[in-house]
């Protein structure tokens, strides 16, 4: 009987842990793959927006924008406001610091040697001994070569981020998460994306999977987590993040933090392991999707409003 009691207690423990996991994580995270085509398992609309031609075809066929995963009005057109930020970023890139050096000193005029680089970020840095996002690499470089203090949430860093992403405009996102620290970061990011947190007890997945992605969230139109990361940083209507200045460039790090705030989650620290892991997951979920820089969250074309009967 004693043995039975022990086994019972053990089972209670197992069942309790099981119940916790059930409530901690959104279902379906085992179905994700690190490629944009993985969306077929989620919204099932991938074929309607797999490239810009497909988006145009879907629009011409009169599809509602929710059937195009909202890619029609979000990333198809370049942003004029964003172009101005690219120009400002180019200026920072060529600006000489107190030691007489600029980014162009190492990376060439107009970033000649950095074309395509942004499409492969984040990646493992031997120097930092961890996976880092582009903004962290910019911060490290600025300190080491320019003696500038430009951490991830500063203006110069974001402007450079926008400019470097622009140098990869048109490239396919290509993040290798098949092994080592990148695989670990991807899996951690995936688990965090599906973890329920905060005052509302929401996960990122609460808004970016399932029925929510086919619907309207007050004035917002959440899409699935596939593909969108290819277009970051974006121009965003000026917006204040806690503790920061008004920001009009949204790097993926800013975006994650902003989403956390809106969902009453504890906002993370930009460039931290946690936010980096989430970015690895999002960026890998855009693998194979063409980057379009600079764009903005809602572009100038309002045709979708007519098509959707709004």
């Amino acid at each position: 009987m004693n043995r039975l009691l022990q086994l019972g207690l053990l089972l209670t423990l197992v069942a309790t842990v099981h119940a916790q996991v059930q409530h901690d994580f959104w279902p379906g995270r085992e179905r994700v793959i690190p490629h944009v085509s993985g969306d077929e398992m989620w919204s099932g609309t991938y074929k309607n927006w797999k490239d810009s031609e497909a988006v145009k075809k879907s629009m011409a066929a009169g599809m509602m924008s929710r059937d195009i995963n909202f890619k029609d009005f979000r990333w198809l057109e370049k942003s004029f406001d964003g172009e101005l930020k690219v120009d400002m970023g180019r200026e920072v890139f060529h600006r000489k610091s107190s030691n007489g050096r600029s980014c162009a000193t190492c990376h060439g005029e107009n970033g000649e040697k950095l074309k395509g680089w942004y499409a492969t970020q984040p990646r493992f840095s031997a120097k930092a001994n961890r996976v880092i996002v582009a903004a962290t690499q910019i911060s490290i470089c600025a300190k080491e070569h320019l003696s500038e203090d430009w951490p991830e949430n500063t203006r110069n860093n974001s402007l450079l981020d926008m400019y470097l992403a622009y140098l990869s405009d048109g490239r396919d996102v290509d993040i290798d998460v098949t092994s080592g620290p990148m695989k670990e970061a991807y899996e951690k990011g995936r688990d965090l994306f599906f973890k329920r947190t905060g005052h509302f007890h929401f996960a990122c997945a609460s808004c970016h999977t399932g029925v929510t992605t086919q619907s309207y969230l007050r004035g917002q139109r959440p899409s699935t987590f596939f593909g969108d990361a290819a277009h970051y940083p974006i121009y965003h209507f000026p917006y204040r993040l806690p503790g920061d200045d008004v920001e009009d460039i949204f790097t993926l790090q800013h975006q994650i933090k902003s989403c956390q705030m809106l969902s009453r989650m504890l906002p993370g620290v930009e460039g931290s392991r946690t936010l980096t892991a989430i970015e690895v997951f999002l960026k890998a979920s855009a693998n194979g999707y063409k980057m379009s820089i600079p764009t903005q969250e809602y572009n100038m074309s309002t045709g979708y409003l007519l098509r959707d009967g709004l």
């Binding site: 916790q20 409530h23 901690d24 965090l192 973890k195 329920r196 947190t197 905060g198 005052h199 007890h201 806690p242 956390q260 009453r264 989650m265 504890l266 906002p267 993370g268 620290v269 931290s272 392991r273 946690t274 936010l275 989430i278």
Partner: peptide, 22 residues
């Protein structure tokens, strides 16, 4: 933020990262 640390959070390096779901 100090209210939000009372609930589970994403950052596993903070105490709230280990709070179980309600």
């Amino acid at each position: 933020q100090d209210v939000l640390t009372m609930f589970p959070c994403h950052d596993e390096e903070l105490p709230c990262g280990k709070i179980p779901p309600p």
